[in-house]
Nucleic acid binder design. Sequence first.
DNA 1: GTTGATATGTTATAGAATTACAATTATCAA
DNA 2: TTGATAATTGTAATTCTATAACATATCAAC
Lengths: 159, 159
Amino acid sequence: MDAIGFETHDHKGCMRAGLERVERACAERGLQFTPGRRRVLELLLEGHRAMGAYEILDILREEGAGSQPPVAYRALDFLVSNGFAHKIQRLNAFIACMHPGEDHTPAFLICRGCDAVAEAHADPASGLLGRAARDSGFTIEQAVIEAVGLCPACTEAAA
Amino acid sequence: MDAIGFETHDHKGCMRAGLERVERACAERGLQFTPGRRRVLELLLEGHRAMGAYEILDILREEGAGSQPPVAYRALDFLVSNGFAHKIQRLNAFIACMHPGEDHTPAFLICRGCDAVAEAHADPASGLLGRAARDSGFTIEQAVIEAVGLCPACTEAAA
DNA sequence: GTTGATATGTTATAGAATTACAATTATCAA
DNA sequence: TTGATAATTGTAATTCTATAACATATCAAC
């Protein structure tokens, strides 16, 4: 079980833990963790990768749940806006958050070989970006950081 | 004329300079800076903001150029893949690069009030992200960094 | 229970980007 | 100069992504 994510890990355990943490966070904040929302989070945790909204929708449809795009998008919006999942802009896809409930600025390492995604942390206030913002009077509220490259496995495969 | 970009500047000068630098870079690298590609870069430089592909396409259409999406997307692909323009994922839009030809990792400050975009620099290899990449054996080739917040003008307007 | 807010179901549409194929133009070696 | 090859452009059709709008149902607090 590794925060970085390019390694094997206790998948079932990480799924269970993820669900429990979100359950607890929802209870604490008075959010409704409805069956539909829960199911979408389960799918993201199961997949353990970035999944497209329509990919999720297809599964929901097979399961007999609603079959229209808003069904998937609403659940995803809920998860994303509460920090339980993240959107990977580069892939137009969504991934379960590895640190749900914690306040953090996620940064993603996206493998262009296998599309695996690892979640890391970043601190946009520091470094060149933070300095540029301060110098120009810009207030950073949120940051999307996505690094594209090759994961260890694909680096090896390429050689 | 400021790299940060939330301030007034010599717009005509920056347009001319931008075109010249790209012209030179294309000549050096044996790239074809065709009229269509040039026109799209001109539009981006004129606008001095992030513009959608279909917004550009509308202008090209009015001017009697091609009117199908690939006309715009091809020119934009050329500009982006050669570092003469950047795509702002958050806005599904494109903006002229402020440092064409130079090797750099752009970082964008995007105002959620007025959609103004400023280009800054970042160094993905340093900081928390760089460390996470090294620790996990991930090779960063490219990074998308987009900070969302309020520019000085909108901060003031909000108060 | 009533009520106001929140969540779901469904239709339709808007917005962004690509595929595929034909036609043209540029590049470069023979 | 010519002929072969690669790069670019034109156009139609389609695919993928996301949201608007409105009706219905469910929840939560009074």
